[in-house]
Computed example of a mutant assay.
Amino acid sequence: MNKKLKISIIIFFIIFVVDQVVKYGFANLGWDLDGPIMSLKLAYNYGVAFSMFSFLAENLKYIQLVIVIVGTIYLFKNKELFYKYYIPIAFLYAGGLSNILDRFTYGAVVDYFYWHYIFEFAIFNFADVIINCAVAIIIIIQIIDSRREKREKTDL
């Protein structure tokens, strides 16, 4: 098995398991905690970011699974893309599939980070943070590649 594939599988499992254990604690063990800046409070999100599309709550898990399957097929056909972005892809799959599992297990995504200092922000979870980190990594890689290409063109 390719080294990058092994690394991505390990990253996936670590993030996925940590996220599910934490969500289990909030959903079943009452891990809520109030703080002056941020609180840890159980909330269920029936939609996606900022509860958008919550009217699709019952079907959202199937729509998201189809998106993951289509993305996986695309990556199988474009393996060079996977090997270039294997770390953020592992992050995306771990966070995304963990949130999808929540929909099957709890009927909604388990959220618990609640920022309320100066302004109130949406409640989110570790998987959401990981997904955003993956997007940031992809953007950074794209910027680095773009700058390198510009440098190579000017050097010619």
Rank of each mutant, 00 (worst) to 15 (best):
F26P: 01
Q64G: 09
N132F: 01
V18L: 15
I15A: 06
L42P: 00
A127Q: 09
R148H: 11
E80K: 14
I140M: 12
I73F: 11
I67S: 10
I14V: 13
V129D: 04
V129L: 13
Y85S: 03
P36F: 07
V66C: 13
F55R: 03
D102N: 13
G71A: 12
A90Q: 04
A127F: 01
W31R: 06
Y112L: 05
I63N: 06
L5V: 08
I69C: 12
I87C: 09
I144F: 14
D34E: 15
R147P: 04
I37E: 06
L33M: 14
F104Q: 10
A27V: 01
G47W: 07
V66F: 14
L29Y: 10
Y93P: 01
L97T: 07
L56I: 03
N125Y: 09
E149L: 14
V110W: 01
I73K: 08
F26H: 02
Y93K: 00
I123V: 15
L81C: 15
G95A: 01
Y85D: 08
I14K: 05
F26V: 03
N99M: 07
G35N: 06
L156S: 12
G107V: 01
I67H: 05
Y62M: 10
F121M: 12
I69F: 15
I143M: 10
R103T: 04
K153C: 09
V68F: 14
L156V: 10
L92G: 02
M52F: 13
E149C: 04
Y62Q: 11
G71D: 05
L65W: 11
A108N: 06
V17C: 08
N132P: 04
Y83A: 03
K153D: 10
A127C: 10
W115E: 03
F126M: 13
Y62C: 08
Q20K: 12
N59R: 14
Q20H: 09
I73R: 04
L97I: 11
F26R: 04
Y117M: 11
L60Y: 09
N132D: 05
I7H: 11
Y86S: 01
I69N: 11
S146N: 12
F50M: 13
V68T: 00
Y83E: 13
L40F: 15
D145Q: 11
Y112Q: 05
V18D: 09
W31Q: 06
N59P: 00
F50S: 05
Y24L: 11
M1Y: 14
K23Y: 04
F113A: 07
S8P: 02
